[in-house]
């Protein structure tokens, strides 16, 4: 099975303020978008980031061929436990998840 990053244009993660993290999957075209919508359940994303599925907000946006996830940061930005001030490192982890 291919990895998500191999079938989409770009995966980007950023802070959405100090308490939230947001991840944008730019699928590139509607075929890849449909594949991501079908093949990437919110529960898998939550498990990957060890978050509660109910805390993960999901937006499937066909007009942009984008799937977006937002979730509370596991460590509030800048606390001693936080490893990633800008939330940049989450995208590559998600990009490596296998997808049907």
């Amino acid at each position: 099975m291919p990895e998500l990053g191999q079938i989409v244009q770009k995966v980007r993660s950023k802070n959405a303020g100090p308490f939230w993290l947001t991840i944008d999957i730019f699928c590139g075209d509607s075929a890849a978008f449909d594949r991501v919508v079908r093949g990437l359940g919110t529960d898998r994303v939550a498990a990957l980031f060890r978050a509660e599925t109910s805390d993960v907000k999901r937006f499937d946006i066909p007009s942009l061929n984008v799937v977006k996830f937002s979730l509370p940061r596991p460590a509030i930005q800048g606390t001693p436990e936080d490893r990633d001030m800008h939330g940049a490192g989450w995208a590559p982890l998600l990009a490596e998840i296998e997808i049907n």
């Binding site: 950023k14 802070n15 959405a16 303020g17 939230w20 947001t22 944008d24 730019f26 907000k57 937006f59 946006i61 007009s63 942009l64 984008v66 977006k68 937002s70």
Partner: peptide, 16 residues
């Protein structure tokens, strides 16, 4: 339209 509408995603937990 794509570059402008996609900017609502940026650093925003809810794009709408």
């Amino acid at each position: 339209p794509h570059t402008v509408s996609a900017h609502m995603l940026y650093e925003n937990s809810d794009p709408f």
